[in-house]
Amino acid sequence: MKNLFSKGLVVSSVLLVLISCKKEESAASAIDTNKIKEEIQAKENEFADTYNSGVMKQIGYFADDAVTFPQNHEPVSGKSAIIEYLKAHIDTVARGRKIAFTTNEVFVSKDGEQVVELGSYTISDSTKNLINSGNYMTLFVKKDGKYYSLRDISTSDLPTE
Rank of each mutant, 00 (worst) to 15 (best):
K2F: 07
N3R: 11
N3K: 11
F5S: 15
S6R: 08
K7Y: 06
G8L: 10
V10P: 06
V11I: 15
S12Y: 00
S13N: 06
L18R: 00
L18I: 05
I19G: 10
I19D: 03
K22L: 14
K23D: 05
K23Y: 07
E24S: 05
E24T: 05
A27N: 09
A30E: 02
I31N: 07
I31S: 10
N34F: 02
K35D: 02
I36D: 04
I36L: 08
I36N: 10
K37T: 12
E39D: 04
I40E: 01
I40R: 02
Q41D: 01
A42L: 06
E44N: 10
E46G: 09
A48F: 03
A48L: 06
A48G: 08
V55A: 13
V55M: 11
M56Y: 09
K57S: 11
Q58N: 14
Q58R: 12
I59W: 01
I59M: 03
I59D: 02
G60K: 10
G60Q: 07
F62Q: 00
A63T: 09
A66Y: 04
T68I: 15
T68Y: 09
E74T: 05
E74W: 02
V76D: 03
V76H: 12
V76R: 07
K79Y: 10
I82A: 12
Y85T: 12
Y85Q: 13
L86P: 00
A88I: 04
A88S: 15
I90P: 10
T92F: 08
V93W: 02
V93H: 02
A94Y: 05
R95K: 15
R95T: 09
G96K: 02
G96R: 08
A100D: 12
A100W: 01
T102N: 13
T102A: 13
E105K: 15
V106G: 12
F107S: 11
G112T: 04
E113Y: 05
V115R: 10
V116P: 01
V116W: 07
T127K: 13
L130V: 07
S133W: 02
G134S: 08
Y136K: 14
M137F: 05
T138V: 14
K142I: 00
K142H: 01
G145M: 07
K146C: 09
Y147I: 03
S149R: 03
D152G: 12
I153R: 13
S154P: 07
S154L: 04
S154C: 14
S156G: 13
D157L: 08
P159K: 12
